[in-house]
Simulated assay, not measured.
Amino acid sequence: MAYRRKTRAWSLALCASTILAFSGSGAQAADQFKQAADGASIECAVSARELTRFALVDDQFASVSKISTGTPYNDFAVTNEPLRGDIYVSVPETFAARSISFFATTKKGFVYKVSCQVEPVPAVQVFITNPAIATNKAAGWESETPLETSAVRLIQAMANDRTVDGFEVRQSSALPARVGDLEVQLIADYRGSALGGKVIRLANRGRKPLTLAEADLASSRTLAISIAQPTLQSGESTVAFIVGSNGGLGHD
């Protein structure tokens, strides 16, 4: 493992940076996943016959503001669940409008405008994430130790397949790339506040043994690298863990 403030970017680092794209996993049809900043509008669909649950990730609803029609048969209802801080929306069968809207304030002080189409679908769930919350949690985790030490801690977490508080972890479906006899493939991407990490699979596709050097994978923003098995025989593979400043490791 090595700390690096300024390192020479070798050709392999350039190749590795080209395969660091990630893909999001598709949500189940019955559930909706929304990402919103403070004051943003959230568009979704609510069930016309059953309950729709709204849940905040790492936050809770504090209050909901809506216009009342004064006629219960033509108005939707919002119920707060105090234990988890979720809200449930129900629409009566006699509801004439094709959409509903309301403002929601959270316990962490965020406000969202929610606009939903009323659809003939079964009970649904809407999960809302605010990136600012995760970023603040990641920044707190990173600030527990000096940045270079935090980079080592992140490598240890990645090597042990552990989640890191506030970090977004995405599995990659990127195809492997070849650099001579070496095959390089992104496995996972960790994104925090100041730090970003990559888990990369390396395979020797040649006929001769291959020795990997940390400098071959480093870029100018790399802070720490660990290669599980630096020497690969023909057909063998290993995993490398790379940590650098966020935005400096080929993020989209």
Rank of each mutant, 00 (worst) to 15 (best):
N130Y: 02
G244N: 08
T211D: 01
L154K: 04
D161P: 01
L210W: 05
V179P: 04
G70E: 06
I19E: 07
A104M: 14
K198D: 14
V126F: 04
T69Q: 05
S99W: 13
D189W: 12
T231E: 04
V111M: 02
V124Y: 06
A45Q: 13
S150T: 07
T149K: 13
P131D: 07
A77D: 05
P209Y: 04
P122A: 10
F33Q: 03
A48D: 13
E43A: 03
G250F: 11
D75Q: 14
E148V: 06
G70C: 01
G140S: 12
L20R: 15
A139Q: 12
S219G: 15
G244H: 04
Y3L: 08
Q35W: 03
A97G: 04
I133E: 03
S220H: 13
S143N: 14
T135M: 12
I227Y: 01
R98A: 13
A240K: 09
M158C: 06
I19C: 09
N80G: 00
N246F: 09
E93R: 11
F167P: 12
A215D: 15
Q229E: 10
D86S: 07
D31A: 04
P209M: 05
F54P: 04
R221A: 10
N204A: 01
A96G: 07
L232E: 01
S220K: 15
E236C: 05
A77K: 09
W10G: 01
G39R: 00
G26A: 11
V169P: 00
F103D: 11
N204S: 10
T149W: 02
V164M: 02
T69N: 10
K198Q: 14
T71E: 10
Q185P: 02
Q117N: 13
L83E: 15
L232Y: 03
R49Q: 15
P131G: 10
W141Q: 02
R207D: 07
A240F: 03
A139N: 12
V111D: 03
R178M: 15
G248L: 03
V111K: 10
R5G: 02
T79H: 04
A30E: 09
R221I: 03
V179R: 15
V89Q: 02
R5I: 12
A138S: 13
D59T: 02
T79F: 08
S17G: 01
A240W: 09
L12S: 00
R8W: 08
A27K: 05
F61R: 02
